[in-house]
């Protein structure tokens, strides 16, 4: 398959001050593909996401979207190229209503895009509970509703790549299942996803491809099915 990668990160080296967190991370995501980013805590998963989005720009290495370099670009430029983030902790604006949270970053899909526009109605169809609370302040929602709001807000920017960092963390099992079914629906809608989550079993079922990080380096990259069939890797790099 010689399709151009949607996102390509090559040789990312990222620092927090003097601490060298990423040590040459490579990551490729093709259009519509679902990639799981795995690894124990502190191995560089969130830093990889921050590097891609320009929130913590890598000191070396490069990031390209559709083959065009975006390394060093400010986060809003990268976001406008079609990348949306559902951050760890959800990042809900407490002083904005649910409706405002959803619409503040909303951008229509580019006119040449074949995908159907994620307008408010479509997002509310995906997350019915939000429709009943549109005029509530963002911080008054339950954890699960905040997670839906964070995902809905990201979808309203009509991304081609949705990054989900610990989207099911701290949620009740039933709510988690709902979030996962939405992740599947998003994937079925043709949006590529980069997923970080602690639920390895579900990840292996949802993702096409998996990348494992250890100490800021990629120690495994391959199809999710291959990783599922190799429990020895789970023990070595994931401690499961």
């Amino acid at each position: 398959m010689s399709q151009t990668a949607l996102l390509e990160a090559a040789g990312l080296h990222t620092y927090y001050g003097a601490s060298h967190v990423l040590r040459g991370v490579d990551l490729t995501i093709r259009p519509g593909e679902s990639v799981g980013l795995l690894g124990r805590n502190g191995m560089g998963k969130t830093t990889t996401i921050r590097s891609i989005l320009g929130l913590t720009p890598p000191r070396r290495g490069k990031v390209t979207l559709d083959g065009r370099p975006v390394t060093g670009a400010p986060p809003h430029t990268i976001a406008r190229r079609g990348v949306a983030l559902v951050p760890e902790g959800r990042g809900i604006f407490p002083n904005l209503t649910v409706r405002e949270n959803l619409t503040m970053g909303a951008r229509p899909a580019p006119p040449d895009s074949p995908a159907e526009d994620w307008a408010l109605d479509r997002v509310l169809t995906l997350f019915p509970p939000l429709g009943e609370r549109l005029d509530t302040w963002g911080n008054l929602l339950s954890g699960g509703q905040q997670q839906m709001l964070s995902m809905g807000r990201a979808l309203m920017t009509n991304p081609r790549l949705l990054i989900l960092d610990e989207a099911t963390e701290g949620l009740a099992p039933q709510v988690r299942n709902e979030i996962w079914s939405v992740v599947r629906a998003i994937k079925d809608a043709g949006i590529a996803t980069l997923i970080v989550d602690k639920d390895l079993k579900t990840m292996l079922r949802v993702c096409d491809h998996c990348v494992i990080l250890a100490k800021g380096q990629v120690v495994y990259a391959g199809p999710a099915s291959a990783l599922a069939a190799d429990p020895e890797i789970h023990v070595r790099f994931l401690g499961i």
């Binding site: 986060p75 406008r80 951050p87 407490p94 405002e100 503040m104 951008r107």
Partner: peptide, 25 residues
């Protein structure tokens, strides 16, 4: 207004605002 939303959002979480494609500068 939409500008007002961006101002409030920027006040509460600068990074998240820019990650949503808003030029915080």
């Amino acid at each position: 207004t939409r500008l007002g939303m961006m101002i409030r959002a920027g006040a509460s979480n600068r990074e998240m605002t820019s990650a949503l494609g808003i030029n915080i500068g």
